[in-house]
Simulated scan of single mutants.
Amino acid sequence: MRNFQKEALILSVRNTGENNRIVSYLTKDEGILTSVLYGGPKSKLRSLVSPFNSGTIYLYNDEAKHSSKITDFDVKKYHLSFRESLFKTWAATLAVEVVISTKCAGSPEECFVMLNGFLDGLDLLDENQGQTGLIRFLWRYIGLLGVQPDTTNCQRCHKPFYSGNFSQNTLQYKTGGVIYSHSENGFVCTDCYKASFDNPERLLFSEITSKSVVYLQATSMCEPSVSRNMKLSDDEIASLKGFLYSHIESSVGTKIKTLHSGIGIL
Rank of each mutant, 00 (worst) to 15 (best):
S181I: 00
P41R: 08
V36M: 15
K159Y: 02
L124V: 07
G146R: 08
G17V: 03
T102P: 02
Y25K: 09
I70D: 06
L11Q: 06
L244F: 03
F82M: 09
T219S: 12
E7H: 02
S107R: 14
C111W: 13
Y58N: 06
D74H: 04
K211R: 15
F118D: 13
K194V: 01
G133E: 13
N199Y: 01
H66Q: 13
V252R: 06
N116D: 11
L94Y: 13
K159D: 03
I248G: 04
R2N: 07
P149A: 01
L171S: 14
S12C: 01
S107W: 09
P149V: 02
I248M: 09
S50Q: 14
I70T: 01
H182L: 12
R140V: 00
T258P: 03
E110S: 12
S227L: 00
V98W: 02
C154P: 00
Y60F: 10
V226G: 04
I237E: 14
R46G: 09
M114V: 00
G143Q: 14
L144M: 13
I135K: 04
P51K: 06
S183D: 14
A238G: 01
S196N: 03
K77V: 07
R2E: 11
S50H: 05
D235Q: 04
P160S: 15
E18K: 11
Q5W: 03
S206D: 15
I142S: 05
G253A: 11
S206A: 12
